[in-house]
Design a protein around this nucleic acid. Structure first.
Lengths: 339, 339
DNA sequence: GGGTATTGAGAAATCGATTTCACGGCGCTC
DNA sequence: GAGCGCCGTGAAATCGATTTCTCAATACCC
C-alpha cells in the first residue's frame, strides 16, 4: 500500500504538502493537481491507524446495545449505521447483553481504541457509568434509555405518551380490567410506559389500588412475560386485557394466554413495540410502533454534530410513537376483523 | 491515560523493558515485578492504536453479513463475538445488505483499517471478490456461503443433507406432491438445499420433470416467498406440501397459504432455518435447525488460528443441521399434535 | 585465567500520518 | 527603498507502542 511519502516522492513535494492537499491546507493549484494525480496513480488512501494515532481520535464510533437479537435494536443499529456511513464513520457494534460488567468492558475498549464517540442504550439506569468517557472528552449520546445523572445528549421515545395512548385505546375498545406487564423497576423505559398506563387508568376512574395490584415487573425477555402473564391470570380478579411494555414479553404473554385458553380479542393484548412477524400471530397484534430506525439515525446525527465540534447546550430529542390498531384489541365482544 | 513511558519512568526502567514485561520478553523477576506494580498503580493499558500502527495489524476483525435483521445472522454474529472476546479481539459488524457494492466498500475499509482478519458471509458467490485481501495477506474465513474460487478457510452448513432430510421427512409423513421454494440461482445455499430436495424426490421415484416444474427461485426475503407460494398454488397440479429454503421466505409462504385458505398440516410446510417466534405460528412449524451460533464460533476459531500464524492447509468445516419435527408437517390426514 | 556464549537492558529506529516551526519570497505601505 | 506581514513550503517533531541493535556483565569451557 502506498504511503504518503511515496505520493510525495512521486509528485516531487514533501509529505507535509500531500497532507495539506487532502486536509484543506493552503497549496498552490498546480502542486495540488500534481499531488492528486500521483495519489490516484498510486492508489493512495491514508492509513487510518496512523492518522488515528496522530489525531488522538479514530474514525470509528461504538454502538452499545443490550440485546442484538431484539429486532428493535437491530433496526436501531441500522439507523445508526446508515447515518454514520454518510460521513465515513465506521460503527462497531457491541452487544452488552443487559450486563453492566460486559458493558463496562466495552466502554473501556472504546477508550483504549480511542473511538471518536459512543452511542449507548444503557444496560442499567443506575449502574451504567459514563463519567470516564465524559472525563476524557469523548462525545456520548444516550439512546432509548437515559442513564441517570449523566450529562449527555439523548434520543428518547415518548414512552409515557405511548403507554397512555395504548391504554386509552384498550379502554375505548371496551376492555375494563386492564393489566400491565412492564420491564425492570428502575429502567426509564419501564417506568415511563407504566406511568402512561397509570395516567390513562386514572383518567378513566380506575383506582390506583387496582392498577397497582394488576401491574407486574418482568425482565423484557420472553420468559419474563410468560411468568408475569400466568401470575396475572391466577389473580382473584383476573384482567380482561393486558398492556405489555415490550415486544419479547408479549411473545411470552401470548404463550401463557394460549395455554390458559384465553384468546384475543376476547382477551385484549397490546404490545409496546412491534413484534416481528406480527402478521403471523392470529389474530394480528395491535402494537405501539417505535421509531427504532429513526432513533438510531437521530443519535448518529447528534453524535456527528458533536464530533464536528458543536458546543450547543445538551439536547434531548424525543420521538413519538404511533399506535397501530389491529385485531388483537378488537374488543371483548369478539367480532373484529384484522386490519 | 498513562503511556508506556510513564510506566517506565515510574518503575525506573526503559520503555523497552515495560514492553517486554507485557509481551513475553526476558526480564528479571525483580524488575518485572516493579513494572507490573507501576503499571497497576498508573492504570496503564497499552494504546491499541499505537500498537496497531507498529505491528501493522489491528486487534479488530471484520464480520460482513448480508442481513442484520435476519435472526440467523444475528445469532451467527453472537457466535463470532463470544469467541472473539476470549482473545481480546473486537468485532466490527458490517451489514452488506446483499449488495455487492456495499460489500466491496466494507472490504476496502477492512484493508484501510488494517483489520486483523475478516469473516464473510458473501453477498454473491460469483461477484464477491476477496482477492485483494488475499493479496495483502489478510486472513479470511468464509461462512455460510462460499465465494466461488476463493482460496479461503470456510465454515459451511451441510445444506444438501439438510434439504434431503427435510424432504424425506415430508415424504414419510405422507405428502405426495412436494414443492420447493429455494433462494437465488447461483447462491451456494440455494443450490445445495435444492439439490438435497431433488435427491430425496428422486429417491422416492418422483420424476425430475415434476420436481423442476414445482421448484421456484426467490430472493430469501419475505416477499419473495409470498410470490413464489402464490405461483405454486396457481399451478394446474398444485402441491400438497412445500419445502422452503429459508426462514424469511417461509413467513411469506405462510401468508400466501393463509390467504388461499390452505392450512397446515393438511398442507405441509417445512422451513429451512428456524423461524423466530416459531411457537407463535399455529400450528408450530417443522424446521431444519441451523447451527448459526456455532457457525460463527467456528469461523472465529478458524480465523484466530490463522492469526496465530497457523499455516495448515486450507480447511472447510461442515456443520450438520438437525430436523425439528413439529405439527406443521403432521401429515395430510390432519390430526398431529404440536410437539 | 583467557576467550567465547549467553543474557538482560537501554538507546534508538520504526510504523505513517499530522502539525508546528522556520524560512525564503513576494507584495504592500509609508 | 526599508520594513512589515502574509503565503507557501519543507524539515522535523510528534503520537505510543514494538523491535532491532548494541553493549556490558556474567557464565562456561578448556
Amino acid at each position: 500500500m502506498a504511503t504518503i511519502s511515496d505520493v510525495a516522492r512521486t509528485a516531487g513535494v514533501s509529505p507535509a504538502t500531500v497532507s495539506r492537499v487532502f486536509n484543506g491546507g493552503r497549496v498552490t493549484a498546480e502542486r495540488a493537481e500534481r499531488v492528486r494525480r500521483a495519489a490516484a496513480d498510486l492508489g493512495f488512501s491514508p492509513n487510518r491507524v496512523a492518522r488515528s494515532l496522530r489525531m488522538q481520535r479514530a474514525s470509528v464510533i461504538g454502538l452499545l446495545i443490550p440485546d442484538i437479537e431484539n429486532p428493535f435494536f437491530t433496526s436501531l443499529a441500522r439507523g445508526v449505521e446508515d447515518a454514520a456511513q454518510r460521513t465515513n464513520l465506521s460503527v462497531v457494534l457491541c452487544n452488552t447483553d443487559e450486563d453492566v460488567d460486559k458493558e463496562r468492558r466495552y466502554l473501556d475498549i472504546a477508550l483504549a481504541e480511542q473511538m471518536a464517540g459512543v452511542i449507548v442504550a444503557a444496560a442499567s439506569r443506575k449502574r451504567t457509568d459514563l463519567s470516564a468517557l465524559a472525563a476524557r472528552g469523548m462525545p456520548v449520546v444516550a439512546v432509548d434509555r437515559r442513564p441517570r445523572a449523566a450529562a449527555v445528549d439523548a434520543v428518547m421515545v415518548d414512552n409515557q405518551h405511548g403507554g397512555e395512548d395504548a391504554t386509552a385505546h384498550l379502554l375505548e375498545r371496551g376492555y375494563e380490567r386492564i393489566a400491565c406487564i412492564t420491564g425492570p423497576a428502575g429502567a426509564s423505559t419501564s417506568e415511563d410506559r407504566l406511568a402512561g398506563y397509570r395516567a390513562a387508568m386514572h383518567e378513566a376512574g380506575v383506582s390506583g389500588e387496582w392498577t397497582r395490584a394488576h401491574t407486574r415487573h418482568a425482565d423484557f425477555r420472553v420468559d419474563g412475560g410468560y411468568a408475569a402473564m400466568r401470575e396475572l391470570l391466577a389473580l382473584r380478579t383476573p384482567p380482561d386485557a393486558v398492556f405489555v411494555a415490550n415486544n419479547l414479553m408479549t411473545v411470552g404473554a401470548l404463550q401463557a394466554l394460549r395455554e390458559a385458553g384465553a384468546e384475543p380479542p376476547e382477551f385484549g393484548i397490546l404490545s409496546f413495540g412491534d413484534v416481528p412477524w406480527a402478521s403471523l400471530v392470529r389474530p394480528p397484534l395491535t402494537t405501539v410502533q417505535l421509531p427504532s430506525y429513526d432513533l438510531g439515525a437521530s443519535a448518529a446525527a447528534l453524535l456527528q454534530d458533536r464530533l464536528a465540534g458543536s458546543d450547543k447546550p445538551l439536547q434531548t430529542v424525543v420521538l413519538r410513537t404511533v399506535l397501530r390498531a389491529r385485531a388483537s384489541t378488537a374488543g371483548p365482544g369478539g367480532g373484529g376483523e384484522p386490519a
